[in-house]
């Protein structure tokens, strides 16, 4: 346990040093992460204005709140592991990670978290500027703010575990880009990034509840917007916890099988 803590601290330092080295790429990543929710915020605002001030159960200012919170939640939960993993396997650098006495997921988590720690202040500043421009309506009850924190952490875990598992498709195929893109399309529609899920057609909403995507992004956003009842919020946290367990099991099974295939190729 102590060794693991040291590993995390060391990985924090390494990632921090690297991020300071590549400040420009940091900025660029952030532009991408701001622009997409911003575009949908604007498009839905225009639709709301045309429709006399609201669309479905969202007013213009509520759309602003939705997409600004979405931007932050998405920034906290996203991973780039699918690209990274393909690179590691293609270039064989995974072999070094396998030699280490700890599971490689630990350094990935530490790397991800430390880069988030660095970007979060900037994202909060951008969110503040967007709030000045678009006047979001955000007045959640206190309990929703309290539950938002565990919901956000669980969302991060669900997304990290499932994307880490999916990234291992690279053990079996060299065409992971098609798999990744399919995943991103599903994520875009079913996690609420194109529109709040309550505006989606009924079948899409059911699908979003069954699949893990809503629990990675949409659920914490809806929670902080005060759109869920206490029961719905608690049940949502339960579903997230269940997905964390499913993710852990899947990760273990797939990782064991994958490493076996990898060693066969690399030998």
């Amino acid at each position: 346990m102590k060794g693991l803590a040291e590993l995390y601290v060391q990985q924090f330092k390494t990632t921090m040093a690297m991020m300071f080295q590549y400040r420009a790429s940091l900025l660029i990543w952030m532009i991408g992460h701001v622009l997409e929710p911003l575009v949908y915020l604007i498009v839905w605002s225009v639709v709301a204005t045309t429709g006399g001030g609201s669309v479905g159960d969202y007013t213009k200012t509520q759309f602003a709140a939705y997409f600004i919170v979405l931007m932050l939640v998405n920034n906290v939960t996203y991973t780039w592991i699918m690209y990274e993993f393909e690179y590691r396997i293609r270039h064989g650098s995974l072999s070094f990670a396998l030699l280490k006495p700890v599971h490689p997921i630990h350094s990935d988590i530490a790397d991800n978290v430390s880069s988030k720690v660095l970007t979060l202040p900037f994202m909060l500043a951008i969110a503040a500027v967007l709030a000045l421009i678009f006047h979001p309506a955000l007045s959640p009850p206190l309990w929703a703010i309290a539950l938002f924190i565990p919901a956000l952490l669980l969302a991060f875990l669900v997304r990290f575990l499932l994307e880490w598992t999916l990234a291992q498709a690279a053990f079996w195929t060299t065409r992971v880009s098609a798999i990744n893109q399919t995943y991103f399309v599903l994520l875009l529609f079913l996690s609420g990034q194109i529109a709040p899920l309550s505006l989606m057609p009924h079948p899409v909403r059911i699908l979003a509840d069954i699949l893990p995507f809503r629990w990675m992004v949409g659920f914490p956003v809806e929670l902080l917007l005060g759109r869920l009842t206490l029961t719905e919020a608690l049940m949502g946290l339960g579903v997230q916890a269940a997905w964390v367990i499913i993710g852990l099991v899947l990760l273990r099974v797939v990782w064991r099988a994958g490493v076996r295939v990898y060693s066969a190729v690399g030998a």
Binding site: V43, W44, V46, V47, T50, G51, V55, G56, Q181, T182, V185, L188, F189, I194, A195, L199, M200, P201
Partner: peptide, 21 residues
Amino acid sequence: LGLGIALGGLAVIFSFTDTLG
């Protein structure tokens, strides 16, 4: 898939409105 995103987004938006700007 890319086209699907674009058309899907349009379908959702135009299910609520007749014109966009």
